[in-house]
């Protein structure tokens, strides 16, 4: 088999796993947009905040210690113990649920019946607020995140492909795990929305707010529920991306990777987020592989947007999005 074909196959395989990482971020956007029509600009910052909180709990860091020290002249930094990961993750989930309650109580409740653009602007404000709070709460230094997930080249894939093709493919074991976790996440969300009372209520609100209200579904509860689930998805994305390159403020920029995925997959479809992520992942890796010798690389950031732009021309609602028909 020619080397170019083998390398292209390796790039495709890596694109698929990278696409899953993008889809993990996009899922959070879809959940909130589907249930409330809000494009949550703060989703990337939520991933950062969740990861910061998880590392903070794991390392026994005292929240707001820098602020406390500055005001009271103390030298508090750590509680003196480390929290096991299995305990730190539920504790972080609790913080994300608390955040969802606060967002509903102090932002969404006051913006009922407002235009989508107003709600969007509110999430921009939330993003900046949360970034600042995360900084004051946990500090801005780079933090290593280790939840026990394996990292590095998969020997199994390497050996298997070497035996088949005479060239061992590289796949990061972390990304293989991410694919498995994303599959579990999507399956759980599907089971939750199809087979639980709250899930059905959530779907009812997504379909028609007014009708859902008329049958006694609490909109405020559904919003808390939706933002809580989005918070948990943000935590999963934060763990995956944080394990790759540490937890630091660039983590919030992963949201930029989700936008083209959403344009491709549609803002209201969970399968769309997965498929969109895979298309973007494979597309950008293959484009970079073939175009790097010509343009010198660094194509990943803009290629995803170019692809989304082309898609917008032909299918503005995305692959799986609902077609918007407005009669005049």
């Amino acid at each position: 088999m020619p080397d170019t074909l083998l390398f292209a196959m390796e790039a495709t395989l890596n694109g698929l796993t990278a696409g899953v990482m993008y889809a993990l971020v996009a899922l959070g956007f879809v959940l909130i947009f589907k249930a409330s029509g809000i494009f949550n600009f703060a989703q990337g910052v939520m991933a950062l905040f969740a990861a910061l909180t998880l590392v903070g709990f794991q390392s026994g860091q005292i929240p707001f210690s820098h602020l406390i020290n500055a005001i009271f002249g103390t030298r508090l930094h750590h509680f003196g113990w480390n929290m096991p990961t299995l305990l730190a993750i539920p504790a972080t989930v609790a913080v994300m649920i608390l955040l969802a309650i606060l967002v509903e109580r102090f932002i969404l409740k006051h913006l009922i019946n407002q235009e989508p653009i107003i709600l969007f602007m509110a999430t921009i404000g939330l993003a900046y607020f949360l970034e600042g709070v995360g900084d004051i709460m946990w500090g801005a230094e780079v933090k290593a995140l280790d939840v026990g997930l394996p990292k590095g080249m998969s020997d199994t894939v390497d050996e298997l492909t070497f035996n088949w093709f005479g060239y061992g493919f590289f796949i990061d074991r972390l990304e293989i795990w991410a694919a498995g976790i994303a599959a579990i996440l999507v399956a759980s969300l599907t089971i939750f929305s199809q087979y639980t009372k709250q899930g059905r209520a959530l779907r009812a609100v997504a379909d028609d707010h007014q009708a859902a209200l008329s049958v006694g579904i609490s909109l405020r509860f559904i919003w808390v529920l939706t933002w809580s689930i989005a918070g948990i998805v943000a935590l999963v994305a934060g763990i995956m991306w944080g394990s790759k390159s540490g937890v630091q403020f660039s983590l919030s920029l992963i949201a930029l990777k989700a936008l083209p995925v959403l344009i491709l997959g549609g803002f209201t479809s969970i399968p769309g987020a997965i498929v969109g992520g895979l298309i973007i992942g494979v597309g950008e890796k293959l484009f970079d592989f073939f175009m790097q010798p010509i343009v010198g690389g660094a194509t990943e950031n803009w290629f995803a947007y170019m692809l989304a732009l082309v898609f917008l021309l032909f299918r503005p609602q995305g692959l799986f999005g609902e077609k918007i028909i407005e009669r005049v």
Partner: peptide, 21 residues
């Protein structure tokens, strides 16, 4: 051989595949 990484540089999968090749 020069290989660029777009800012901020959180995603370098393609670059390191190329380095490996």
């Amino acid at each position: 051989l020069t290989i660029g990484v777009d800012s901020p540089g959180q995603e370098q999968g393609s670059q390191w595949l190329q380095i490996r090749r």
